[in-house]
Design a protein around this nucleic acid. Sequence first.
DNA 1: GTAGATGCAAAGTATTTGCGACAAG
DNA 2: CTTGTCGCAAATACTTTGCATCTAC
Lengths: 136, 136
Amino acid sequence: MQETIEQKCISKGVKLTDQRKIIAKVMSESTDHPDVIELYKRVSKIESKISIATVYRTVKLFEEAGIITKHDFRGGKARYEELNESHHDHLIDIKTGEIIEFVDEEIEKLQKKVAEKYGYDLVDHKLELYGVKKKS
Amino acid sequence: MQETIEQKCISKGVKLTDQRKIIAKVMSESTDHPDVIELYKRVSKIESKISIATVYRTVKLFEEAGIITKHDFRGGKARYEELNESHHDHLIDIKTGEIIEFVDEEIEKLQKKVAEKYGYDLVDHKLELYGVKKKS
DNA sequence: GTAGATGCAAAGTATTTGCGACAAG
DNA sequence: CTTGTCGCAAATACTTTGCATCTAC
């Protein structure tokens, strides 16, 4: 079992308030990629007096601490996902909005190679595939 | 020589107003990836009474017509770029913000393969590499 | 002539922030 | 205790829109 968000907060010196614990729990239990409003809704079910400002502040904090990650998929709103040791990219169904996570070592390697070719060290990357389900 | 934005508008039945001609010209001459504010500034130098609402409406129109493309790089604002037959991805210097355009056929092929693996037809994709310039 | 485009300002979204009250370490 | 957090509402940033006027075709 890997470290929980709460444990990561402790090891990174992030103060753990009740609100943050709840947001951490909700993030951990989310298998999708919720935006702030969605997160706020889920959090509110557990503790209704958490304000949306706190949700915004907390996701930003967690992101800066490297605990969760932010995506700017199409649609304007930022969406978040727990970060764990297994990196992956996303395949997005443009009809249904469904998101499939995948990893392709070959692509990862090639990305590093491209960066090197231009004299860069690859720090991060974003790969999103947009597709439609095949008939067959 | 390839088709200009103006020519594309004509062939796609997009009405060509003076404002659109100016915005088209500015987009064509931009080798970077300007956001709407930047575009508005450049356009204003040529014709100062174009409103920012028109710039927003026009980039949206051009985007829907498949004439330019929109990027949501880090930093909140949408940025635009003329679309031409040569597809490419972006390598972004996280220190300076500089953007390098590149193509890697190998990666392109692998992306299609990944989509197929999950039963999808690849319609579009977004690949952004974030890096820092090497010392040496 | 007419459908669609423009300018302006007002309205929408998404997100951030100032501030007094409050809680974690 | 003291530093940092929370809730609230106001502020900001980016983008869209209603409406009267104007223009390309």
